[in-house]
Structure formats: C-alpha cells, structure tokens
Nucleic acid binder design. Sequence first.
DNA 1: ATGGCTTGAGTGTCAAGA
Length: 258
Amino acid sequence: MKLATWNVNSLKVRLPHVLDWLATEQPDVLCLQETKQEDKAFPFAELEAAGYTAHHNGQKTYNGVALLGRIAATDVTRDIPDFDDPQKRIIAATYDGVRVICAYIPNGQEVGSEKYEYKLRWLAALQGWLQQEIQRYPRLALLGDYNIAPEDRDVHDPAAFKDQVLCSVPEREAFQKFIGMGLSDSFRQFEQAEKSYSWWDYRMMGFRRNAGLRIDHILLSPPLAATCSTCRIDKAPRKLERPSDHAPVVAELTLPPA
DNA sequence: ATGGCTTGAGTGTCAAGA
C-alpha cells in the first residue's frame, strides 16, 4: 500500500499538478491539505476520471482536507470529535483495514500568539482522540502538514528558528507525544539525505537555496511501521511552474492480509 | 529593513500561510 500526503496550497490552482502526480506515482491513498474551497467546488469528477474517489472536508478560502483513494474507503469521518472547531482540518477513513487520518495542523503564526495557543489546544485534542483511534484501529497512519519541524536537522537554519514557531519546545514536545503513543516517523526509519525538507518559502528563492523545513510527516502505528519499506519526499512537483510551497511525502507498506 | 511570494476574496487591499 502506497500512502502519500501533500499540502497543495489551493486545489483549484494545483489540480493539474495533482492529476499529473497521481498518474505518475499511483498512490493508493493521497491526503491533501489546504484545498481552500467548499465541497461544492471540489473537483470530484476530474479525480474520479483519474481513477480516484475523493472525500472532502472543505470550507471557503482557508484550510480544507481531502482523501483520494483508488481503493474503497469506509467509515469516513470529519473533524475531531467533541472538539468545537470551525476550521476544517481533519478527515479520516479506513482503506483495506488501515485507518488513514489526514491532518492539517494549525500553523501557530507566532509563539505566544492566540493562534499559537489554538495550535497547542488543537494538538492536545488530536492526541486525545488519537488514543481512542489507535485502540480501535491498530493499523493507523497519521499523515499531513504538522507545521512542526521535529528536530534541528529538519531546519535549514536552526539558529534562526530556535524557539520560533514550528520549532518551539512545546511544539516539538507535542510531536514527541505522537512518538510516545507508539507512532513512528516513517521518514526517519530509513537513511535519508542531509538537509531533506518538505516545505520551502516562496520568497527569497527558498527552494533554489534549499532554505526549507521538514514539516510534512507520515506517522505509522507499530504494525504498519514494521511493514514500511520506504519513505521519501518527492521534490519534483516543487520544480514546476506555479508550484505548491510543499512537496509530497510518500511511504510504501508491504501489508500482510488484514 | 518585520520586508521578501502566493492565494482567495473581490476590484482595493488585506488576511494568512510558515
């Protein structure tokens, strides 16, 4: 099973890139973040024509998450249960016995800001819900834009980002809490090139300078981590005209029958 | 230098991203 995540920064703008990428990579499930559109504008038909059935949790202008699958999804759920949140950041479904959760974790804007407090509250709510989900679904994958660079090696300039948003101690502790729940950062299960990032600022020629951060992650529960054969960041779409500022992350699992 | 791009809403210019 091939799983992927990609923050597309507007699906309306990026749909051609997504369709090309699906044709090339043929993931079983692709998680999208920042679709930035309402459900009624979502390109269900174009994706179906490409062989993918989509489920969307969208809103106007901001946020919005989707699951695209070439296998059937069951038990599709939206949002964190019992967490009052107008922002559409979660969609989950079960594919072939694997619980796939697509998350767009808040950015946090600035340490100490209201949005930062919201980010930490949101992370705590996600973790509370995740405890139950892992009990219910031992085969679980949490994919998405975490807006957290877990370690200094995930940051092009650790000194400049020290204690800044995306790199602050409370955010990194929240990431480690996922690890403490038994989830594995699949990218770090394998040897990787130094200075591997998944996001580069549009400004200041960030991509050409490789001035990036690794903030998009695929976390796997123990039974899935044990069967993960590869995890990589695909920089190719970031080189196209009008790219998303994020690159897709892909993990492959060699699953025994459920 | 608190900038530097990109997007959506909407038609002037701002919020938000990371």
